[in-house]
Lab assay of single mutants.
Amino acid sequence: TEEVEKIVRELQKRGVSQEEIQRILKRNGIDPRDVEHVVRRLR
């Protein structure tokens, strides 16, 4: 989703690792598959 993408991009800008990003998003109830998808697209 748009929202997830924004969050991921923001965290990446701050130098947060992929694993940490995924952990944060999972904690916020976001589907890990969505996270994977977004992270892969932004690489």
Rank of each mutant, 00 (worst) to 15 (best):
L42I: 15
I30T: 04
V35M: 04
Q22H: 10
E20F: 03
V38R: 01
E36V: 04
L25M: 06
L25V: 06
Q18V: 15
V38S: 01
R43Q: 15
R41A: 03
R40T: 09
L42K: 12
R23Y: 05
G29Y: 02
Q12K: 05
D34S: 07
I21T: 01
Q12G: 04
V39N: 08
E10R: 06
R23M: 08
I24E: 09
E5K: 04
E2Y: 09
V39P: 00
R14M: 10
E19T: 07
K13S: 11
V4W: 08
S17L: 05
P32D: 07
R41F: 04
I30A: 05
Q22D: 08
I30P: 01
R9P: 00
E2P: 09
D34F: 12
V16G: 01
E20I: 05
V39F: 11
R27F: 09
V16Q: 03
Q18P: 12
D34N: 05
L25Q: 02
V38F: 02
K6N: 07
L11K: 00
K26L: 15
Q22T: 13
Q12H: 13
K26F: 11
R43L: 15
E10K: 07
R27I: 11
R33S: 10
S17A: 06
L42Q: 13
K13Q: 10
H37W: 07
V35P: 01
V8Q: 00
R33F: 05
L25T: 06
P32W: 08
E36M: 05
S17W: 02
R40E: 14
R9Y: 04
E5Y: 12
I7W: 10
K26Q: 13
I7Q: 07
R14V: 06
K6L: 07
L25Y: 00
E10L: 08
L25E: 01
V39C: 15
E5F: 10
V8W: 07
S17F: 02
E2I: 10
P32T: 04
D31G: 03
I24V: 06
R40N: 13
P32L: 05
R14K: 11
E3S: 09
L25H: 01
D31T: 04
G29S: 03
E36L: 05
L42S: 13
K13M: 11
V8C: 13
D34Y: 12
G15S: 03
T1A: 09
Q12I: 15
R14P: 01
R14T: 07
R9D: 04
L42E: 13
R23F: 05
H37L: 12
E36H: 03
L11W: 02
I21A: 04
R40W: 00
Q12M: 15
R27K: 12
I30Y: 14
V16K: 08
E10M: 08
P32Q: 04
Q18I: 15
G15I: 01
E20L: 04
R9H: 05
E36W: 04
I7V: 08
H37S: 13
V16T: 06
E36G: 03
E2D: 11
K13E: 10
V8D: 00
R41V: 02
E3F: 13
N28C: 15
V16I: 11
R23V: 11
I24Q: 08
E19F: 06
I30F: 14
I30K: 01
D31M: 03
R33V: 08
I21K: 00
R27H: 10
G15T: 01
K6D: 06
V16F: 12
L25S: 03
V8E: 00
E5L: 09
T1M: 13
R41M: 08
K13L: 09
I7C: 14
T1N: 08
K26W: 09
R14E: 07
R9F: 03
R9I: 09
G29L: 03
E36P: 02
H37V: 12
E20R: 04
L11G: 00
I30W: 13
E5D: 05
I7S: 03
E19Q: 10
Q18S: 12
K6G: 05
I21C: 14
K13G: 08
E5M: 11
K6W: 08
E3M: 10
V35T: 02
E3H: 11
P32Y: 05
I24D: 03
R41L: 07
I24H: 07
T1K: 09
E36A: 09
E19R: 09
T1R: 10
E3N: 11
E36I: 06
V35F: 07
E2Q: 10
T1I: 14
K13F: 05
D31I: 01
R43G: 15
K13V: 07
R43T: 14
G29R: 01
I7E: 03
Q18R: 11
V39D: 08
E20A: 06
G15V: 01
V39S: 05
I7N: 02
G15R: 04
L25D: 01
D31S: 08
V35R: 00
R9C: 13
R14W: 07
I24C: 13
E20Q: 07
I24W: 06
V8M: 06
D31C: 10
E10N: 06
S17M: 04
L42F: 00
Q22Y: 14
K26P: 04
K6Y: 07
Q12S: 09
R9V: 06
S17Q: 05
E19A: 11
K6H: 07
S17H: 06
V16A: 10
Q18N: 13
Q12F: 15
N28M: 14
Q22C: 15
E36S: 03
P32A: 08
G29P: 01
I24Y: 06
E10V: 05
E10H: 07
H37F: 08
V4L: 14
L11T: 00
D34Q: 11
E3T: 10
Q12L: 15
I7L: 11
R27P: 04
V35C: 13
K26D: 11
E5P: 01
R23W: 04
G15P: 01
I30E: 02
Q18H: 12
V39G: 03
R14L: 12
R14Q: 10
I24G: 00
E5T: 06
G15N: 06
E2T: 09
D31K: 04
V38Q: 02
R27E: 14
K6V: 07
P32R: 03
G29A: 03
D34A: 09
V38D: 02
P32K: 03
H37E: 15
V35H: 02
G29C: 11
Q22W: 11
L42D: 12
L25A: 09
N28G: 07
V39Y: 02
E2A: 12
R33T: 07
I21Y: 03
V38E: 01
D31A: 04
H37Q: 13
V4G: 01
K6E: 07
E3R: 09
E5S: 05
R40M: 00
V35Q: 01
L11S: 01
R40H: 08
T1Y: 13
V4T: 04
V38K: 01
S17T: 10
R33W: 06
V16W: 10
R33H: 10
E10Y: 06
I30M: 09
D34M: 14
R9T: 05
D34P: 00
L42P: 12
L11R: 00
V4M: 07
D34W: 12
L25N: 01
P32S: 06
E19I: 08
P32I: 07
I30G: 01
R41I: 04
E5H: 05
E19N: 06
E20G: 06
E10T: 06
K6I: 07
G15A: 03
R41P: 00
R41W: 03
S17E: 04
G15Q: 04
R23K: 10
G15H: 07
Q22S: 12
K13Y: 06
E20P: 00
V4H: 02
V8I: 12
E36T: 03
T1P: 10
Q12P: 00
R40Q: 11
R33Y: 04
Q22P: 02
R27D: 14
R43A: 15
L42Y: 01
Q22L: 14
V8S: 00
I30Q: 02
S17R: 06
E19G: 08
R43H: 15
E2F: 11
R27M: 13
R41E: 12
R33K: 12
I24S: 02
I24T: 04
R40Y: 00
I21M: 10
D34G: 04
N28L: 14
K13H: 08
E5Q: 04
V16L: 12
Q18T: 14
R40D: 15
D34V: 15
V39A: 04
H37R: 14
V4A: 05
I7D: 00
R33M: 07
Q18Y: 15
R33N: 08
I7P: 00
G29K: 03
R14A: 11
I21E: 00
E36K: 04
R43V: 14
Q18K: 11
N28H: 12
I7G: 00
L11C: 12
E5V: 10
V4C: 14
K26C: 15
L25K: 02
N28T: 10
E20T: 05
H37T: 14
R40L: 00
D31P: 05
H37M: 13
E20H: 05
H37G: 10
R27G: 13
K26N: 09
E3V: 10
E3L: 12
S17P: 08
K26H: 12
E36D: 08
K26E: 14
R9A: 06
V16S: 04
R40V: 09
R41K: 11
D34I: 15
